[in-house]
């Protein structure tokens, strides 16, 4: 597994900032009415997407969720193309036909955000089956929430990945709430990771707010999968800064109970401290990266705002491949 070095640290810090800035911008813009539909923001969970994707190449696949912007950014999707997609513009990554919940870029190994909770599991298994069949060393990461863990697809897919020893890492983002329902209410098992035992595969729970913990655990899991040792479940305990969707009053958040530990942590500030203390970044470099990120997101917003809406005739495009 690759240890955190200077180059990797800069990449990680930039991606974490990109996600936070992207989501904070979308949060603000959403209130103006410029963004149609609804959006589910990833802010607060950055260390999971970035800590995992730091180990992946464009040839590795990921499946994502309705809260997918962070996964897209971490997997290398173009920021301007993403923002334009969320605005419903023709220059969007999906030509304005997908929107926030369906951003995808297969060339980058991003098999799509997914509007169906639990929809990504079997698709990840299929991509893993493909990798195994073609005898590649590429892996698939299936990001899923604590809510999706209670869908039937979880059981079927984890079981299939286990019996076929597929290179699929099931990364659970346990942000404590499935919509407005707490994980501790909705799951019979205390953790998601402990369910792995039922499938005869390893499961591990880490502090998903700690980039270094996610980075390390994901690195091990991904290495293991590349060596043909099969799937595992990596549960990352985390928290979302915003509601389930924009406009959610979040009355279910207690902030003084079991969630407090995760709610109070800012994974980006913590990682910055860690990186500087361990001489992986200087203060100046960190400031420079943060400023570049802000500028990149501002440019993405400008691009999206100045882009044309889709031409009417594109309504009919791409229902079928010719």
């Amino acid at each position: 597994m690759k240890e955190l070095d200077v180059k990797q640290t800069a990449w990680i810090y930039k991606k974490m900032n990109d996600i936070r800035n992207f989501e904070d911008q979308v949060h603000q813009i959403f209130t103006t009415g410029s963004i149609p539909g609804f959006v589910h923001l990833y802010a607060g969970e950055e260390s999971v997407a970035v800590g995992v994707c730091a180990h992946l190449t464009d040839k590795d696949y990921i499946t994502s969720t309705h809260r997918g912007h962070g996964h897209c950014i971490a997997k290398g999707c173009d920021l301007a193309g993403m923002m334009a997609e969320i605005y419903g513009k023709e220059t969007g990554l999906c030509k304005g036909k997908g929107g926030s919940m369906h951003i995808a870029d297969i060339d980058k190994g991003m098999l799509g955000a997914n509007g169906m909770v639990g929809g990504g599991f079997p698709i990840a298994v299929g991509a893993g089956l493909r990798n195994k069949y073609l005898k590649t060393a590429d892996v698939v990461v299936c990001f899923f929430g604590d809510g999706a863990a209670n869908e039937g697809t979880f059981h079927e897919s984890v079981n299939m990945a286990a019996i076929w020893k597929l290179p699929v890492i099931f990364v659970n983002e346990n942000n404590s709430f499935a919509e407005a329902t707490p994980q501790w209410y909705a799951s019979g098992s205390k953790t998601i990771a402990e369910r792995a035992a039922a499938y005869g595969i390893p499961g591990e729970t880490v502090d998903g707010k700690d980039l270094t913990a996610v980075y390390k655990a994901a690195g091990k899991a991904i290495d293991r999968a590349r060596r043909g040792k099969g799937p595992m479940i990596l549960e990352c305990r985390t928290y979302r800064n915003y509601g389930h969707f924009e406009g959610d009053e979040q009355k279910y958040k207690a902030l003084d109970g079991k969630e407090k530990k995760y709610a109070d942590q800012d994974c980006i500030k913590d990682f910055r401290k860690y990186a500087i203390a361990n001489k992986l970044l200087t203060v100046e470099q960190a400031d420079q990266i943060a400023a570049t990120s802000k500028a990149d997101i501002a440019a993405a917003v400008k691009f999206a705002e100045n882009s044309p809406i889709p031409r009417p005739e594109t309504l009919y495009d791409n229902v079928f491949a010719d």
Partner: peptide, 9 residues
């Protein structure tokens, strides 16, 4: 679903 994923890849 795996068949969809295998086809997409």
């Amino acid at each position: 679903g795996a068949a969809v994923g295998a086809a997409a890849t």
